[in-house]
Design a protein around this nucleic acid. Structure first.
Lengths: 218, 218, 218, 218
DNA sequence: TATGAATGAGAGTTCATTCAT
DNA sequence: GATGAATGAACTCTCATTCAT
């Protein structure tokens, strides 16, 4: 949909990469509308006109960064989808993959956050859909399968479950990145601590909050 | 911190109110940076200079809207905090109060969403903290009390529980407002349907996802 | 249709006039597309932003200059239309009025010339129609009346006559302004010479080219 | 004056021709200044740099198109000049030749119209002079000859006659091309209709507007 | 106190032209 | 000889802010 110009594709791939990174960084810092082409070219030390040789306009530049992000996200998602094993293991794999993705491509995730509630961002819905790869589309089939196998209680509303899992996983990742949303110390936790937190999170998800004895008494 | 000028305080309170509403609406629609003072004064039919008599600048204007939002949020929070009864009832009250708040003050909530991930918004963290009134600060003490009373399993990590509850409640409220998240049908639901969804959610929260028999066997 | 902003109308009329003249001059020199807002504000010694307080954009600025031109043209046209007397006297009055108009408002006429064949000029047709006030619309009724009175041969095709008169008068005015179209010495001729040329032109128009004796013989 | 580079002359003549046509088309559509080298090379599918191998710059490219136009115009003009016969027959031949020229080389004529009143077009006057091949230079000698032969009244000012004929013929050709001037139905007229119109025009030219009886009485 | 005209930095975009490959 | 990436000046337009009235 949003294609770069041929000029860009003819560039040495290191230069393509540099541009992609500079643009990503700018969009990650400022969102779509506040991002400045001026700043991007300054960062890159190229002329203002050059970027218009590479991309028709800001929209197309963003579109390219964005489809690049989707490509990366899919690379992460693919191997998880085909993974075999118990449902809760897959969940763990998923959330760890999410964190790995953020570590590897912090700008992409930041762009996602920036445009989550930004208005009139070209292609926004598509982008959000793609980067939230643990969303209903992905989780619901997993839940169905798990319920069939007896891993999940029969009377659980799976739509609601998918929705809530999405919410929790999304927030977990957000907290990993944004200190002010972090109350569990996940932000910049080391590898070991991270594992602990995720396991802790899984216990919560597995057992749920309610005391079964207490709840069943009522 | 961000005070209006004395000129503003001398204004008839109806005019103060109108200004507050116009500004809220603009910030809700456009976020902080993309909000336009031009549009605000147009909406109000006052001179552009006047708004600078009332507030030192955009930052201070936003600060005022913002403290107004916090005040409103606290009004909702106070009565809930003092409510007596079982923990899960309080939770239900909380989420319903949240929805009531959004209904009553849609602009405030939208501002919260808009600035959630916006950079360089003056006082952003404070505002977000305050409007997310079901955040850790509020939930953790409730959870502690509930655990003491035996309503909640002893081996649950309360920090994690507060974090997750926060995440889920936040997303529930977002779903109420944003069509793109309405896979669970909460968007624009009628009063009755809404109750159903919240009850459903509570069951989910109470019992958790995991099949206890299955889980305990492993 | 193209309105100035209230800000402009509130300006002291001398300033309005200065702006109008500066803009007219620029549009007259460069046409619509090549006209530069930058140059206009430079000429005026005002800030770039100011002109956008006065007019929504270039299109509206041009629209205003243009409707001002139409107003002036109508002021010239009105008195001629109501003039009584022989047809050929009216023709003479018309062409002299045209020259007077050009003398008084050289920029307006130059704008007309500039946009005659310029593409995508907002409101171009309307403008051209209005400034070519000796066009078919104006000439045809006069010719009809003259024919009725016997001033003009009965077998003359009046549409063709109007068309040709328009062509000749238009070119006369163009030659008055543009040296390279002038082969009869009308360009910047003095009052006396001008009268002579116009009379000469009228003879040509009255009698036509053809030698009647010769023509009738064939 | 404006020469192509040797590189261009070494090109196969089909390529030369293609370039000429593409450039003509662009200049015809956009005039001189708004014409875009970008679009020309796009149309041709050649590299932007190449065109600067062929022509020093835009000015020289235009100059070449322009001298090509003059060459074509002269090809049309030559045979007419040498034609023998009555003056009014020559006039008819002339205007028909003009229409033929426009049909055959629409871009050249459109360029003429576009730059008629455009400022700072290199060589503009020369080009206009050449393409308006029924101008004073051409018409005046014909008129002199005709007057000598008694085809034209003795007391006609030939300079004025040439001027007016030029004006009328020019406008006739414009009407053939531009819909907004087609009050006389010349626009896109079929061959037969066209002949009729030209004859009608000739009658007008021959006899003139004035009623001789009426005029002579006064 | 209220007004609104004036400002100017900065935004996205276009384009003829250059020059290393 | 052909290429096309790189340039940068100039373009129109927006906006928070100032200040004389």
């Amino acid at each position: 949909m949003f294609q770069p110009q041929k000029t860009f594709l003819a560039l040495p791939s290191t230069k393509q990469q540099r541009l992609l990174e500079a643009a990503s960084e700018e969009f990650a810092q400022a969102g779509y509308h506040r991002a400045s082409i001026n700043r991007i070219v300054e960062r890159l030390g190229i002329a203002k006109g050059s970027i218009y040789q590479y991309f028709r306009n800001k929209e197309h530049l963003f579109g390219y960064v964005f489809s690049y992000g989707i490509k990366l996200a899919k690379q992460v998602l693919k191997p998880i989808e085909t993974t075999q094993g118990p449902f809760f293991d897959k969940l763990k794999t998923s959330i760890k993959a999410g964190i790995e993705f953020i570590k590897k491509h912090p700008f992409i995730y930041h762009i996602y956050l920036k445009i989550l509630f930004e208005e009139k961002v070209p292609g926004r819905e598509r982008f959000i859909q793609a980067v939230r790869f643990y969303s209903r589309e992905y989780l619901f089939p997993l839940l169905e399968e798990a319920q069939k196998k007896g891993e999940i209680k029969e009377d659980i509303d799976l739509e609601m479950a998918a929705f809530m899992l999405d919410a929790m996983m999304d927030r977990l990742l957000q907290a990993y990145v944004l200190p002010y949303l972090d109350s569990i110390g996940i932000h910049q936790a080391d590898e070991k601590k991270l594992d602990e937190i995720i396991d802790n999170w899984l216990i919560f998800v597995k057992r749920g909050l309610a005391n079964n004895h207490f709840a069943s008494e009522r």
